[in-house]
Structure formats: C-alpha cells, structure tokens
Amino acid sequence: MTTMTTPVLQASGVTMRFGGLTAVRSVDFTVNTGEIVGLIGPNGAGKTTFFNCLTGLYVPTEGTVTYKGTVLPPKPHLVTKAGIARTFQNIRLFANMTVLENVLVGRHTRTKEGLWSALLRGPGFRKAEKASEERAMELLDFVGLAAKRDHLARNLPYGEQRKLEIARALASEPGLLLLDEPTAGMNPQETRATEELVFAIRDKGIAVLVIEHDMRFIFNLCDRVAVLVQGEKLVEGTSDVVQADERVVAAYLGEPFEGDPGTAETADVAAAETGAAPQSSTTSTKGEAQ
C-alpha cells in the first residue's frame, strides 16, 4: 500500500458457485512481494472456498487468479509447480514417512529425476539426491527439526508437525506460501513461535497469505488484512483500519446470517478433505437426493 511493489498473486472478480449457491462473490484480492497478508472472516464466510480457488482445487466460476502475471493452472500439482505452496488446516503430513522424506517429497517439483535415472543411478542422480537432501536439511534446520530427521512424521508432537508441514511446503521453493489456519490448536507460546517463523519466511522473500480465526495472531502478523463475509470482501487494509471497522466487529459478534452459505460450504470442505474425493461435490449419493 505504502510502497509500490509487484503483485505476486492477483485475484480479480473471483466468483465461485456450487449449484445455486454462491460461496464467493466477485472478490478482488492482491498479495504483493514481501508481504504477509491475512484473510479472515467468520465461519463459513467462504474463506476456504476462496483458498481452494487459489490452490487449483476449484476453478472459479467467474474471474481469474493469476500468479506473477500468469493465470493459475486448474490442477493443484501445477499450481504448486508454478510457485504457490500450501499447508492444510488439519495437518496432512505423510505420517509414515520420516521427517526428512516428507521434506524431500516437497522437493518434487524442483527436481526431475525420473524412473530411469533412479534405476541407473548415474552421477547426475546422486548429485541431485545429495543436493535435495542438503536443501531439505537446511529447511529442517530453519524450522528447528534437523535433529529429528529420521523420526516418523506421525511421532512428532503437534507443534512440530505444523512446522514440518511448513518446511515441506517451503521445499517446493514457492514465491507464495498459503497457510491455512497455522495456529489452530496451538497454545500461546507455540502461536508466538509460529509468528516468528512466518516473519522469517517473509524475510526470505516469500510472500505469505494466512487464513486464520485467531484475530490477535493475524493483526500482529499481517501487513494487510482482508475480511471476507458472506462470500464478499467486506474491508481490506492494515490491521488498524480493519480493527476499527464497525462492520467487521458486527460480522464477528453480530447476528448470524439467514441462509448462511457456511453450512453447505463446510460440508463440502469436510467431504473434500476426508481424502476420499477432494472434489467439489460430495461423493455421489443415493439416487434420491437430487
């Protein structure tokens, strides 16, 4: 806002409809380089839907999302390749892989050794594996998990699992990191540590977009905060501006909405995140329902 920076992520007029239900309505939104941006809103305001539009899980019904000037491809793995990495609200590590392996998987898009090179094990392969491992160890060092490289991810305590997820996302060398409720379930100390970590990530030159419930965390952290209510962007501005806005207070404390789009959306998201079918629709139902 104060300085002219280049936009990393630019969403313009993003609308997402599920059947007759509009979960997100013409949202314009920008994240610039070197910025930490927060996205808040009451439950069911369309945050996660919007988030999924950014990660390629959904293709917006209307509007476009561009990353560094190019329209985002409609597949999550291509979005990651393009340079947007993400974490999950309910941690989704590869539980039965080691800490190091988790981060190495994160390196997938930045390495290209295929089956043949794995089978032939030429010098190129060894070099790439070594470089990947070094890079992964740097990242583990960065989040403070280097000592636990050979532990299985499932055996880490909760806070460390969050850190590992961030390290794994960083391994894809993103230009933008999306954090989906990174402090959910954390105590104040852990939240504080996460704050430090996010600042450190920003200092590496990576833009960060955080979705959160915890207002204090957001306002401490973010250069700019956007508030999403009922699928529409209500306010956007610095922490002070947003905090002072009456409508935000009303939205958070005030009356619940009629025809709250939230229910359907949360159900969608729940269905999407059970892993069975990360798709916009719930798994098909008995012939009845439609």
């Binding site: 899980l57 597949k75 999550p76 079918a277 990360p278 798709q279 916009s280 629709s281 719930t282 798994t283 098909s284 139902t285 012939g287 439609q290």
Partner: peptide, 9 residues
C-alpha cells in the same frame, strides 16, 4: 446418473 466421484489427478 452419478455425480462426479473422480479424484482429480
């Protein structure tokens, strides 16, 4: 008659 159940690859 089904809805989409396919995983996105």
């Amino acid at each position: 008659l089904g809805e989409r159940v396919a995983d996105r690859a």
